[in-house]
Simulated assay, not measured.
Amino acid sequence: MNDPILLATKLNELVQLASEASTGFEQAAIYSACSSIWKEFEESGEQFDGYIMEKVLGVCYHIKAAVGYDVTNGHNKSSHISWAYGELMTLDNLLEERSRNV
């Protein structure tokens, strides 16, 4: 697996891109990149506790919902972007804490 902190940084970039995405191509590219990052975490899941995996999944869900590739549950794009940033902040803190303890 790539460095999980690097992948979390890339997720942060994807949240920003999702907030600005307006074309189908941009939305599909963001969905694909997010899915690839999730898969990297999932394949290395034994390295991470359930809470870290939950946060990665949460970030990815909100990114995908923001670009129209997952259900929105009636919420708008900006709400999903905001929630993705919240999940990402927790993820960043967890990964940083984990890296200090390794």
Rank of each mutant, 00 (worst) to 15 (best):
N76C: 15
M89L: 12
A29F: 05
S82H: 02
A84L: 01
K10E: 14
Y51I: 12
K39D: 15
A66H: 04
S32I: 05
A84C: 02
A29C: 06
N93V: 06
L17I: 07
G24Q: 12
H62V: 01
N76S: 14
L88T: 00
Y61V: 03
K64L: 13
S35P: 02
K39N: 15
N76H: 13
L6E: 07
E42Q: 13
N73T: 08
E13V: 09
V102Y: 11
N93A: 11
A21K: 02
I81H: 02
D92Y: 09
L95E: 06
M53G: 06
L91A: 02
L91Y: 01
N73D: 15
A21G: 03
S22Q: 11
V15C: 03
W38D: 12
L57H: 14
N101E: 10
E42R: 15
E40R: 06
V67P: 06
T23R: 13
A33M: 09
E40M: 08
I30K: 04
S99Q: 11
L95W: 06
S99H: 06
Q16S: 07
A65S: 11
A8T: 05
L94G: 07
S22R: 12
S36H: 07
N93M: 13
I63F: 02
T23L: 15
W83L: 10
D49G: 12
I30P: 03
Q27E: 09
S99T: 14
I81S: 02
V15D: 01
S19E: 11
D92E: 11
I52G: 01
L94C: 10
C60I: 11
E54H: 05
M53K: 08
A84Y: 00
Y61A: 03
I52S: 00
E87L: 01
D3T: 04
E54P: 00
D49K: 07
N93E: 08
A66G: 05
N101S: 15
E43Q: 15
A29H: 07
I5F: 05
I30T: 04
